[in-house]
Design a protein around this nucleic acid. Structure first.
Length: 428
RNA sequence: GUGGGUAUAGUUCAGUGGCAGAACGCCAGACUGUGGCUCUGGAUGUCGUGGGUUCGACCCCCACUACCCACCCCA
């Protein structure tokens, strides 16, 4: 319809039967995370803009160009308005909540997971939306609780591998790198800048820009001509101090021991400023250009940069839209059909149908009810299209005799069933 | 933000400077209370929006918008 209101750019409606796949993913996630003792956290969709400036980083594309942000009305004339933003990711909100509610006072490590919408004002394309959904988890806590342990990193990665396997996703790749601690990073960045300085003018325009704004991103460049240069650039691994090196080695040792396959990718970098040390990405070939199905890493200094106590952590975010996409390209999930379609036949039968439907639903039977004005032919046709297993006819004959006509729509068999036996017959 | 492609029925898509099409779907019918298969009939479109050229534009031109793909960035 021309002129009618449509979903706004970059947003979309998720309709049945596709929503069945989303529900399948959600429940698999809750199942798997539960046995790792992760618990759900729900944070607001709106946050103080500063939260993202101080965590994700003011210079990142996400914060500098892609935020939905606005100034809230001031409450008093003397005050200035507060800048609010739709969350572009959820780790910052979780860490904010951790600090705000003093969750370090709780025993041990905090293990949270979340499932929810995130917002970035990017140009939409395959696997990229302005409102998109992330499934994420965070492990965070005081160092004394073991939050810095490489065992935590390995456990999180192993959990992800378990989840993807559980979902039946095949052909994923785990890419792993260490981007260094806050002590390692400046030394590496300096080395990178020094190495780029004499050669950057021969590189692509994007790299020349990146060399200025975010030298790590140069490693990401896909321009073929630049590859020989990038291969010769210093690697992060050469600039890790002894502690970081041992940490990363231990993560790999455990992964190998538990049988999770990974690839070291020296050029893997993350786009958010808060990441330190272990960084990772799971990719999948079926996704097109946006091939990262999930990404994450350690953020040892994030709590402090938000005004909290030392609380190292590690987390990840799964792009649920992309996950569902790979699932649909491989398997797909069928919507649950109705157990029975009740076809009331003739005046007064809607009442009988409603009574029976209520009883059956109380016993967990999935019931769809037709209408007494429908011709039987139409009711049966609708029942078939819905994929119902049975059609139950309620007409004068049935009410008088007490024998209800129950038809198996797959076999075509039909039999009279006493009213009190109907639930038993319909049980799967 | 940049580039390319696309825009016609609910969906997937044909189409020609001179009355708008197919398939699937939807609705109805093929004698009484029996679906799937088949047959028959029907409805639905301001041909994305706004301008322009023309006797006449769904078709040609311009602008805009949206969607798709890619860059960028990321999940």
């Amino acid at each position: 319809m021309a002129g009618s209101i449509k979903a706004i750019r970059g947003t979309r409606d998720l309709l049945p039967p596709e929503t069945a796949t989303w529900n399948f993913v959600d429940s698999a996630v809750r199942d798997v995370f539960r046995v790792y003792n992760f618990q759900e956290i729900r944070t607001p969709i709106i946050e103080d803009l500063q939260l993202f400036q101080r965590s994700v980083g003011e210079e990142t594309d996400i914060v500098s160009k892609e935020m939905f942000a606005w100034e809230d009305r001031a409450r008093a004339q003397s005050e200035k308005g507060q800048w609010l933003a739709l969350r572009p990711e959820n780790t910052a909100g979780v860490v904010r909540a951790y600090i705000e509610h003093k969750l370090w006072e709780r025993p041990g490590l905090q293990r949270f997971y979340y499932i929810g919408p995130q917002f970035r004002r990017e140009r939409p394309q395959k696997g990229r939306y302005r409102q998109f959904y992330q499934i994420g988890a965070e492990v965070i806590g005081p160092p004394a609780a073991g939050s810095e342990s490489p065992a935590v990193d390995a456990e999180v990665l192993e959990m992800l591998a378990t989840l993807l396997d559980r979902l039946g996703i095949q052909g994923w790749t785990l890419k792993l790198n260490s981007v260094g601690s806050s002590k390692d990073r400046p030394r590496y960045l300096q080395a990178l800048r020094d190495a780029l300085e004499p050669v950057v003018h021969t590189m692509c325009a994007d790299c020349q820009r990146r060399a200025q704004t975010n030298p790590l991103r140069v490693l990401d460049c896909k321009v073929p001509e630049d590859q020989p240069i990038i291969e010769k650039l210093p690697r992060m691994s050469e600039y890790l101090d002894e502690e970081s090196r041992a940490h990363f080695a231990e993560v790999q040792k455990i992964l190998t021991a538990v049988g999770v396959a990974y690839e070291i990718d020296h050029r893997l970098v993350r786009g958010l400023d808060y990441y330190t040390r272990t960084a990772f990405e799971f990719t999948h070939g079926a996704l097109g250009a946006q091939n990262a199905i999930l990404g994450g890493g350690r953020y040892d200094g994030l709590s402090e940069s938000l005004g909290g106590p030392p609380a190292p952590g590690i987390g990840f975010a799964i792009g649920e839209d992309r996950l569902v996409m790979t699932l649909q390209e491989t398997s797909g999930v069928a919507a649950q059909p109705a157990d029975v379609y009740i076809a009331p036949l003739g005046a007064g039968m809607n009442v009988e149908a409603a009574k029976l439907a209520r009883e059956l639903r109380g016993k967990g039977v999935v019931v769809v009810v037709g209408d007494e004005t429908f011709k039987l032919k139409k009711s049966l046709e609708t029942a078939s299209k819905l994929g119902a297993r049975f059609a139950l006819i309620i007409g004068e004959n049935e009410v008088n005799s007490g024998q209800f006509a129950l038809k198996n729509l797959a076999t075509g068999e039909q039999a009279g069933v006493e009213r009190n036996r109907i639930p038993a017959v319909l049980k799967r």
